[in-house]
C-alpha cells in the first residue's frame, strides 16, 4: 500500500458470469469522471465460462494494471472461495467485502472436490484483514433481481473507494439497461447500507 503509486488498488474476485467486469467498468468510469487516472486488468476469453475470475482496478495510478502481491487496499469478493483464492493480493489489514453465498464449481457438484465451509473462510480471512461478509444473493433478491448481485457488492465496497457515491450512482444509471435502473440503484443502496460508516 504505497499511496504515491496508487490511491486505491482493488482486487475483484468472482466467478465468470457474475458481472465482475461490469463492476470494474463502473468503478473505472466513475474514477475517470473524477479526473483520476485508472488502470485495470480483466479476465476475458477461456476463463469467462464459469471459471475463476480476478480483475484488478487501480485508482489514481499511472503504472501497470497488475497489483503487486499483498499490496491491494481492498478486495471485492463476489464468491467466498474466490475471496480465499486471491486473498494474498490484499495488504494486511486491507478491507475485504465479500458475498458469503457460494457458487459450487462443477468439480464440486460432480464430486471431485469438496467445498469448504464459507463461515470458516470468513473466520480465516478475519485473522489478517478487515472483513464485511454478508449474503449478497439475499440482498439482490430483495432489490428485485438476482443478477444485481454485482451491484449490491459494488454498493458495499463503495464506502471505501475514493469516489463520491453520487458519481458511482450516476455511472450505474448510464451503464445498466434503462429498464433495470431502479432495481440496480436499489441493489446499490442495499449494498451500501451494509458498510455505511
Amino acid at each position: 500500500m504505497t499511496p504515491d503509486l496508487s490511491k486505491f488498488d482493488l482486487v475483484i474476485a468472482g466467478v465468470g458470469g457474475q458481472g465482475a467486469v461490469k463492476v470494474s467498468d463502473i468503478i473505472g468510469k466513475a474514477a475517470v469522471s473524477e479526473e483520476m487516472s485508472v488502470r485495470a486488468a480483466e479476465t476475458h476469453g477461456m476463463a469467462q465460462r464459469g471459471g475463476s475470475v480476478v480483475n484488478y482496478v487501480r485508482l489514481g495510478c499511472e503504472l501497470g494494471s497488475l497489483i503487486p502481491c499483498s499490496s491491494a487496499h481492498g478486495m471485492l469478493a463476489l464468491e467466498p472461495v474466490e475471496a480465499m483464492r486471491y486473498i494474498h493480493d490484499v495488504a494486511k489489514d486491507g478491507i475485504v467485502v465479500m458475498n458469503n453465498s457460494p457458487i459450487y464449481p462443477v468439480t464440486v457438484t460432480s464430486g471431485q472436490c469438496t467445498y469448504p465451509d464459507p463461515q470458516e473462510i470468513v473466520t480465516r480471512i478475519e485473522k489478517d484483514y478487515r472483513v464485511v461478509a454478508f449474503d449478497a444473493v439475499a440482498l439482490a433478491r430483495e432489490a428485485g433481481n438476482m443478477k444485481t448481485l454485482n451491484v449490491v457488492m459494488l454498493g458495499a465496497i463503495s464506502s471505501y473507494l475514493p469516489i463520491p457515491e453520487e458519481t458511482l450512482v450516476e455511472c450505474i444509471r448510464n451503464m445498466v439497461p434503462p429498464k433495470t435502473i431502479d432495481t440496480n440503484l436499489e441493489a446499490f443502496r442495499l449494498g451500501r447500507e451494509t458498510t455505511r460508516q
Partner: peptide, 19 residues
C-alpha cells in the same frame, strides 16, 4: 520477497466449463 501468507485451506478448482 513477496511471500503470500501461508494458505493451508484446500480450495476446489474452478475450471471454465461448457455453459
Amino acid at each position: 520477497e513477496c511471500k503470500p501468507a501461508k494458505q493451508d485451506m484446500e480450495l476446489p478448482v474452478r475450471p471454465p466449463a461448457m455453459c
